[in-house]
Amino acid sequence: MTTTDDRTTAAAVDPGPLIKLTIADCAAKVLHSAVTLGVFGALAEGPADEEQIVAATGLHPRMAADFLDALAGLGLLERTGDRYSNAPLAEAYLVPGTSTYLGGFVELTNETLYGTWGRLTEALTTGAPQHLDPDKGGFVGDKHKDPEKMKRFFAGLDAYSDRMGAELAGRIDWSRHSSFVDLGGARGNLASVLVREHPHLKAGVFDLERTRPLFTEHVGRLGHTDRIEFTGGDFFADDIPRADVIVLGHILHGFDTDRRRELLRRVHAAVNPGGQILVYDRMIDDERSNAERLLSSLHMRLVSPDGSEYRIGDLNDWLAEAGFTAPAAQPLLGTHTLVTATR
């Protein structure tokens, strides 16, 4: 039964934030569709009107005006009179073919997030991971069996690792080191960024053997075949290649605490004395108050049986247990945390 006091309280609280939260996925889907249809690439040559954009992208005239104006309202396009142009954010990161292009990452999230998050309620009541394809399992489904699917998947990851590699290249004093290994480095994109920025480094990538053909193709195309060595293996069964620095990006969040501790011990044995470990993930703040990081943790629980994000303080404890010293944390790209420690 609704009372006068209930109505008075409701009237005093603006429901706007609740409504925006309820339809937040609509804005994301507008972005995803704009990338898929090539809107930002079509505007890379200069402003265009609605009719020109329709012709270039295949937009239906009935949908075009609201769609383009919504993109403008979201800060991705700018409208002057009847002509549209890319806003600075889109021009910087959403024009295909540029070195800073993040459209691949946008497409990757579109492909991987919606199927799993649509089953969140089931996961919350059963505790079971909700795979992208329940019949095939795993975060990437059966993509490893289809080279073209796997290439598209890695292209999305590369869009992000380009920026991550550039950040790591500038954040770490690489002059103190002569070698590094990117653990779970996929087809070597982050490693390629680092050796490009620091030519004196000898680089390695350690990942599953099935990734080798994709690594060979990608690193060969980038011209770094003689700079980066691939080692195929299992983190927990095979020796991790020795190096001055070992990088763990988006690795620890895939395992439970016991496996994280075990892996850090194995990494400690592989880091040369005086070397460093670099760990980056969307780590949870120690007060567990950052909603975006907690949503990332929920995502890992959705797509894996044991994964989740973890607190910075917990990682510091695990690093100390493994034998590392002087852990230090710093924000990275506004979405991640980088923790470094010394052997």
Rank of each mutant, 00 (worst) to 15 (best):
D5V: 15
A11W: 14
D14C: 06
L18Y: 09
L18K: 12
K20D: 06
A24T: 12
A24F: 14
H32V: 00
A34Q: 03
T57P: 15
G58Y: 09
G58H: 13
P61W: 11
A64G: 12
A72P: 00
G73Q: 11
T80H: 11
G81F: 02
P88Q: 14
G97V: 05
T100D: 12
G104L: 05
Y114G: 04
G115L: 04
W117M: 08
T121E: 15
A123K: 07
L124R: 08
K143A: 14
E148R: 15
L157Y: 09
L157T: 11
D158N: 15
A159M: 14
S161G: 05
D162V: 13
E167A: 14
I172S: 03
S179C: 12
L183I: 13
G185C: 03
A191H: 08
S192W: 02
E197P: 00
P199A: 15
L201P: 01
K202N: 15
F206N: 06
H224Q: 12
T225L: 08
A237Q: 10
V245R: 04
G249A: 06
H250W: 07
T257Q: 15
L264M: 11
N272H: 10
N272F: 01
G275N: 02
D281A: 13
R282C: 08
M283V: 08
N290Q: 08
E292F: 05
R293S: 10
L295W: 09
L295E: 13
M300Q: 05
R301E: 10
S308C: 09
R311M: 11
D314F: 07
A320Y: 06
P327A: 02
G334R: 02
A341L: 13
